[in-house]
Amino acid sequence: MIKILKSHQSPTMGRGGPFQIRRMRPGKVYGVPAFDLAFGPLSVIDHATLRANNLVPMHEHLNDEILTYLISGKVTHEDSIGVTENITRRRLMLMNAGSGFSHEERNSGEDLEGLQIFVRPREKDLPPGVQFYDRPVNYTNGTWQLVAGPESSDAPLKFRNQVMVFDIHADAGAELEAPVAKGMSPFVYVMNGTVQVGNTTLQKGDAFTFTELEMPIMRTLNQAIIVVFLSDLNAAASKSGTISGGGG
């Protein structure tokens, strides 16, 4: 059975302002009351926009694993360990906040849009750090790309828990099966475009999971970006994170 989380079911913060976030709690896809709406270690997905020439000032995170995934624009990252880097559609970043990590983000020249993905680490107060990944030139070629995964995986960016992130940039008319991994449950997000799953049409900002043994076929009705999260729902995880540790 397919379970759907529509875009309008997630609250938007900063509406009309320069920095706008629609905050998804992926466990809400099951549609049942729960104090903790995480999807295993996958806790929060913020679909964010930031207008050009704005700053998100320096702030601290504790025990959050934070993947920054852009589809447009550029942001300059500065942090408490002295790193300054530009983040773009091709250059991704994963912050492992651990026992404490501060950062700020400044964009100039153009608006940006992307996701900030918050994962709970396997335990609290691990060493802090930051990782970067330059995507291959052909990453928009219509095939699934592994962006991030557990330390034991061959993913280019490493979460310190059992979560994987894949994406695909697909043309109209593509028929797709999402990646799968043993012991992991899927949360599928339509980042851009329109996707049909069975008799259901999903628009930008909608998401779904499924309980069947086989992944349903997705059909793109126009150009689309789809992000697939695989999460071990039974993995041990710390709930002490600044953002990822939250309940409802």
Rank of each mutant, 00 (worst) to 15 (best):
K28W: 06
T201M: 09
L92V: 00
H59N: 10
E105C: 06
I81N: 14
L92G: 02
W144Y: 12
D111V: 03
Q9R: 14
T200P: 05
A155Q: 08
E113L: 04
G183N: 14
G129L: 06
V56C: 01
K239F: 08
V165G: 01
G16K: 06
A207Q: 07
G129I: 05
M13W: 08
E214F: 11
A207T: 05
I117E: 02
S152R: 12
S238R: 02
A174W: 06
F187A: 03
F118M: 04
H103E: 06
E177S: 14
R160Q: 10
A148V: 06
S43M: 01
I117Q: 01
Q203N: 15
K204C: 07
V119N: 06
F39S: 04
I66E: 04
S10W: 00
R106Y: 13
A155R: 03
L92P: 05
L230M: 12
I45L: 13
F229R: 07
E65C: 04
V44R: 07
K158P: 08
R106I: 09
S185E: 15
G114A: 03
P186V: 05
E214M: 11
P136T: 01
M218P: 07
H169W: 15
M1N: 15
T49D: 14
D111C: 05
K3A: 15
G142N: 13
M218V: 03
Y189S: 04
K158W: 12
D171E: 15
Q9W: 09
G193S: 11
E175M: 10
V227S: 03
L202N: 02
A148C: 12
D134N: 14
S43G: 11
W144L: 02
A155M: 05
Q9N: 13
G142E: 13
Q9K: 13
R51L: 11
T88Q: 12
K124P: 08
G82M: 06
V29Y: 06
H8L: 11
D46F: 03
K204S: 10
T220N: 08
N54L: 01
E212Q: 14
I2D: 04
Q116F: 05
Q223L: 00
S231Q: 12
H59M: 07
N96Q: 13
E177C: 05
V130R: 11
E105N: 05
G198W: 09
E65W: 04
S152Y: 11
P33V: 00
H77K: 11
T242L: 02
T211N: 14
G193P: 12
F101W: 10
P57I: 00
N199V: 08
H59C: 07
A97P: 13
A38S: 15
K6R: 15
D134K: 09
G149V: 01
G40W: 04
Q196A: 14
T209R: 11
E65A: 01
L233G: 10
M215T: 15
L70T: 13
D79K: 03
P26V: 00
I217E: 15
T209G: 15
A38K: 07
Y139R: 11
N199D: 15
